[in-house]
Simulated scan of single mutants.
Amino acid sequence: MVESEEGASLSEQLLESSRRNNTELLLSIKSALGNDQVKLSELINSTHEVITNNSPLHIACHSGHWEFIDIILDIEGVEIDPANREGDTPLHVAVRYSADEPEHGTFVVDGMLDAGSDPRIKNKHGLKPIDYVNKDNDKLRDLLESAEYAISMEIPPEQQLQNGDDEDDEGSASDSD
């Protein structure tokens, strides 16, 4: 792995960037990789803290580092729902952050949901992100409930094919009124 003058690997630099919301360091990592989306997403997806297995996205969500998160979410191929040692996704962590910073936390969670984070994922304790919402944060609860509902209403492409492809009724299903 490429090392900086200080000897820190790109993974170590990425973790440090996520801890400090250091977007300049993140952009220099992107530049060091020639702004190659594949190399960058592979680096991000393979970088984790040793003990907690937190990804850079987990770390940034823990502190509400939106600037870092926003750049990461724009990189094609980045896994946005990786699980840490406890099975928490970055969305779980962002919801916990909202307990101390309700407005900014809700903003971060909204951004994560817009990027495709799945609010239905349960951690090792069987809890979804919504289970960590403070009782008095109705806005965040509504946001997560709406996201779950929207996902539940989506019909997977393979089911769409099955629903419209009935052997006994070759194509006439769309003609019924």
Rank of each mutant, 00 (worst) to 15 (best):
M1P: 06
M1R: 01
E3K: 11
E3G: 05
E6Y: 06
G7Y: 07
S9E: 04
S9R: 04
S9A: 11
L10N: 03
L10P: 00
L10D: 06
S11I: 00
S11M: 08
E16N: 13
S17H: 04
S17I: 00
S18T: 03
R19D: 07
R19G: 01
R20K: 15
R20V: 10
N21E: 15
L26Q: 03
L26E: 00
K30A: 15
A32G: 06
D36I: 02
D36G: 08
K39Y: 02
K39V: 00
S41D: 01
E42C: 05
N45W: 03
T47R: 03
T47F: 03
E49T: 14
V50Q: 13
V50C: 09
T52D: 14
N53D: 11
N53I: 00
N54I: 06
P56F: 02
A60C: 02
C61V: 04
H62L: 12
H62I: 02
S63Q: 14
H65E: 14
W66F: 15
W66N: 13
F68C: 02
F68S: 01
F68L: 03
F68K: 00
I69Q: 04
D70F: 15
D70A: 14
I71G: 04
I71K: 06
I71N: 03
D74L: 15
I75W: 13
G77I: 05
V78F: 07
V78R: 03
E79M: 14
D81G: 09
P82Y: 09
P82D: 03
P82N: 05
N84Q: 11
N84I: 05
R85W: 13
G87S: 04
D88G: 11
H92Q: 09
A94S: 15
V95Q: 09
R96G: 07
R96W: 12
Y97V: 08
S98E: 03
D100V: 06
D100S: 13
E101L: 12
H104C: 01
H104R: 14
G105T: 10
T106Q: 11
V109C: 14
D110F: 13
D114V: 07
D114S: 15
S117L: 03
S117R: 01
P119D: 10
R120P: 02
I121C: 01
K122Y: 03
K122F: 04
N123Q: 06
L127D: 10
L127Q: 12
Y132G: 09
Y132S: 05
N134V: 00
D136W: 02
N137C: 01
N137Q: 04
R141W: 01
D142G: 04
L144E: 08
A147S: 10
A150M: 08
S152E: 06
M153R: 09
I155K: 12
I155Y: 07
P157M: 06
Q162G: 08
G164I: 12
D165Q: 13
D165H: 13
D165S: 14
D166W: 12
E167M: 05
E170R: 10
E170P: 15
E170I: 15
E170T: 09
A173M: 12
S174R: 14
D175V: 11
S176K: 13
D177P: 02
